[in-house]
Design a protein around this nucleic acid. Structure first.
Lengths: 231, 231
DNA sequence: AGCAACTGTAATATTTATGTAATATAACTC
DNA sequence: GAGTTATATTACATAAATATTACAGTTGCT
């Protein structure tokens, strides 16, 4: 699974910490922005709402506690999970931290591994429950929760890439995608493979669809790309 | 939805923590009882079985780990979800915690919000089991209350982890789970175990299912995870 | 204390999928 | 219809994912 869609904001006045954290996040495919103080953070949040905020406890200007409190007060930011980064844990900190509304704590120094684990745990909780969704076009049924594809009730065997490819096309039926677009959406943004590779996987997909005669739904648009359609 | 039917027991020697936690619980409409040590907790459990137990790691007398282990051994309390409250996470704690059978961890200090979120997540998971003790798929019968599994009437011997694994899969049949999801649901959240460990337990489960020829119900979905299905 | 049962990890083996290049076919241009 | 370009098809070496086994450390039990 990839974290590409989760955007995390790191707020800390120490550049070294920000860099370290961001590096760990990027390694895990998270999107990441940095802010050196609360004001800059606010601007960034307005521009693009993060899924999670890592917030330093002690900062010049507005402290992490006060900033957390402020975020909790505003409806738009109320539900963004916050992880506090503290130098050390003191009883006093704990109480004030609880009140400010942080969701988790991390005491410096912390390992990237622990940081990632906690972020994932929090994100999991803040995400809506998995929804079982079934895409159905023309007797061709793709179930994303069971990873099954059926044509006229018959099971169709697909490799991982063919499954992702079919899923992408079925989620956007009747629309033509260039090979580049297909690569970006199915393989991922930062992967480099030959454009012609798409042809091969289209071929594999068609072959797999032959037994149930759905191969013609995967259509070539010469000079433009590919399309999935029932016409 | 309301939580007034869920009764939660808080076991901790520190009064301040108990009060804080209970206050948060009551605010969410949970029923709540407090116990300052394992013995008092035991009496309360006998009187009225809680839906979930919050258990302090370090307590004078019987420690949280030992108490959890004890609860796991007795059939009546075997299936009550347990969340451990620990002062800090050390490698050693994690390992021993795993074996004691806790379902989740919470490191002090924690926010009420996170506490509630985790409790709800755990309850959601254990709900189907409360209403239905016996899950049956394809002549494979799993009885959560007696900790027994039968295939075609024949008893199947399973270790604790394999049992939990099979149970989780049977509660969500025909659905693919990544190794990460399996770990979070079977081992518990916030637990650092290699993803490949799942493979090994899947192997053990399959082996145990061989005598009754149910091993093929545990299916690999390459690039995605595992699934239990009768197809 | 000592044996049996479990667990997680690492090493190794096995299976399956992937991307590329080479070649064939089809579709356009003029 | 020859030449040109785009796509189809096939084969294959390699990479990646999973299966399997062995093992060392714990715990539970007697």
């Amino acid at each position: 699974m990839t974290n590409e869609n989760d955007y995390i904001l790191v707020v800390d006045d120490e550049r070294a910490i920000r860099d370290m954290v961001c590096m760990a996040l990027v390694q895990e495919d998270f999107q990441c922005s940095e802010a050196s103080d609360a004001h800059k953070a606010e601007v960034l949040i307005k521009k693009n709402q993060p899924q999670l905020i890592l917030l330093d406890w002690m900062m010049p200007g507005i402290s992490g506690i006060d900033f957390a409190r402020k975020l909790r007060r505003q409806p738009e930011t109320m539900n963004i999970p916050i992880i506090m980064l503290t130098a050390k844990i003191e009883e006093d900190n704990v109480i004030r931290g609880l009140e400010s509304g942080a969701d988790d704590y991390l005491t410096k120094p912390f390992s990237p591994r622990e940081l990632i684990a906690r972020i994932k745990a929090l994100l999991r909780r803040s995400k809506p429950e998995n929804t079982q969704d079934i895409i159905k076009i023309n007797n061709l049924v793709l179930d994303t929760s069971s990873y099954r594809v059926e044509g006229n009730g018959q099971t169709i065997e697909l490799g991982p890439t063919e499954f992702k490819l079919l899923r992408f096309l079925m989620e956007n039926p009747d629309r033509v995608f260039s090979r580049e677009q297909v690569l970006n959406n199915v393989w991922g943004d930062n992967v480099y493979v030959e454009e012609r590779t798409v042809d091969v996987h289209i071929r594999r997909l068609r072959k797999a669809l032959e037994p149930t005669h759905h191969q013609d739904m995967v259509q070539t648009v010469r000079g433009a790309g590919y399309r999935l359609s029932n016409k």
